Each structure stands twice: as C-alpha cells, then as structure tokens.
Simulated scan of single mutants.
Amino acid sequence: MIKVGILGANGRMGRVLIEAVHGHVNTELGFASVRESSSFIGVDAGELAGIAKQQVMVSALSDEVVKTADVLIDFTLPEALEQNLQLALAANKPIVIGTTGLTGEQLNFIDEAAKSIPVVFAANYSVGINLMLNLVQHAASVMGDDADIEIIEGHHRFKKDAPSGTAMAIGHAIANTLGRDLSKCAIYGREGLSGERSPETIGFATVRAGDIVGDHTALFATLGERLEITHKASSRLTFAKGALTAACWLKEQNKGLYSMQDVLGLV
C-alpha cells in the first residue's frame, strides 16, 4: 500500500482526495495536513471528508508529518507552494502538484525542485482532459491555419484564477502545434469596438457561476464549418482519482518533472 500525504486537507479538493484514497485499492492515508491555525487539527480525516473514520487525525504541516507518507499531493494555494516544496525536498518525497494560478517565479520553484525529487505537475488530472490536449493538437495541425480558435471555460463561483490552468494548457497545446507564442497571440476579453478578428489570435472566454466543476471547449471555426472539442467534469472525484494514479506512478520514478501526459503514456 502506498501511503499518501494530503496537503490542504480542509479544502474542496483536499476532502475529495481523502475520499479517493479511501476508495483506492493501492493507497492508504499517510497524513492529512492543514495550516497551524486551523480549527480542524485533531479531527479524524474521514469525518472531515464526510466518510468513515480513517484513524488518521488532521495535523499541522511539519517536517515530521511529511515523513509519514510515501508520496505527497498538493492542491493548495499558490502562496503555499514554496513551503510545500521545501518540505518535500527536505524529506526527499515525490510530490504531485495540482495548484493553479501560479506565477513564473512559482513555476521556477517547481523546476528547481524537480532536479532533486520526482514531481508531477499538471493543470488538470482528469483522463478526459489529457486526451483532449492530444485531440486539440491534432485539430490544430489540420485546421489551425484556416480556423479562428477560441477557448471557452467555466468553473464554480469560488474559483480565484482566470482563465483556468486547464484552459491555458489547452491554449499552449494549440499554440505550440501552430508555432505561435501564446503570450503574444492570446486575447482574454473583448469589449466595444474591438475591430476585426486577427487570424493569428487565440481567444479565451471565462464563465464563473454556481457549482460548475469544470467545462472546457476548444472551438475551431472557419467560414463554412466549425469543430468543437468539449470536456465536462461533473465531479471533483475525477480529478482526485487522476491525482492518485499520478501518485502511484510517481513513486516508481526517478527525479524529474513529469506531466499527466507522461503518467498516462500519451507522449
């Protein structure tokens, strides 16, 4: 059994990860950690997740706690990333990272950590989304020179970053296929007299509403037809199961930076 340590256990994804570990045939909960000031410290992790008791109490994150797991999973906040990576490095533990909205500096932290420990970093851990990344590259190679390309994404009202990390991953996959620099060709909003659409641009549209778990569409439109590649997630458990698949795979890898495409054998 692989012991999984969950950082940010009181978050929406943290609770679902606890549930996923409980239901996975090859994993068990090593620890479930929260901030030192959290009122959840001392609560059974299963009760926190709304499932059966796990006999693992929620604890503050520390060097000693990190040592009790074989692999760490971090779906916390960007501002916690550096500390979480330092703890993983100190304990020489592989880490799966699903935190989005990261800055260039924070991405560099991940790159540096991967020189010493195995790291999986992905914007989205669902199998369907990672297959979609392959599909949009194929569509771009066939239609990209003639089509207007737009990416539409929707998430729940509580999501703090926009566009989503997954939408950006889709954009990068398309741009790289077409030999474009996404930082120069992306359009993140249109208002007023925006002028005729430039054929080189890749547009992004963002929806934030209710409890949408995650909807993503890549639209390729010409003057005579359009192709839409869409993925819709109905449960966060999809992402949690994918993260556990990554964790089990990562335990057997050498140091380095890996993607979910690597985990699934899609590259």
Rank of each mutant, 00 (worst) to 15 (best):
A205E: 12
T201E: 14
I212D: 00
V207K: 09
T238R: 07
P199Q: 00
G210F: 02
I212S: 05
A243K: 07
D215Y: 08
E225C: 03
R197K: 15
A240W: 05
I212K: 02
A240S: 02
A221P: 02
S235Y: 04
G210C: 06
I229F: 03
E196H: 10
E225H: 11
G210Q: 07
G214K: 11
K232W: 10
R208Q: 12
A205P: 00
S198C: 09
G203M: 04
S235R: 06
I202Q: 01
R236A: 08
T201P: 03
E196T: 14
A240T: 00
A240Q: 13
G224Q: 04
I229Y: 03
L223S: 13
L237M: 15
I202F: 01
H231Y: 00
S198M: 15
S234A: 09
V213R: 01
G203P: 01
G203W: 10
T230P: 03
T217E: 15
I202H: 02
I202M: 01
G214S: 07
P199M: 09
T222A: 04
R208L: 08
K232Q: 14
D215N: 15
K241Y: 10
E228R: 04
R197Q: 15
D211E: 11
A209K: 15
D211K: 10
E228Y: 07
T222F: 03
A243H: 13
L227C: 13
A243Y: 00
E228H: 04
S234Q: 07
S234H: 14
R226E: 09
R236H: 14
F220S: 02
L227M: 12
F204Y: 03
E196M: 12
G210K: 06
T230F: 07
L219W: 12
H216G: 10
E196P: 14
S235I: 00
H216N: 12
H231M: 12
V207D: 06
G242R: 06
R197W: 08
A218Q: 01
T238V: 13
L227W: 06
I212P: 01
R208V: 04
A218S: 13
E200C: 07
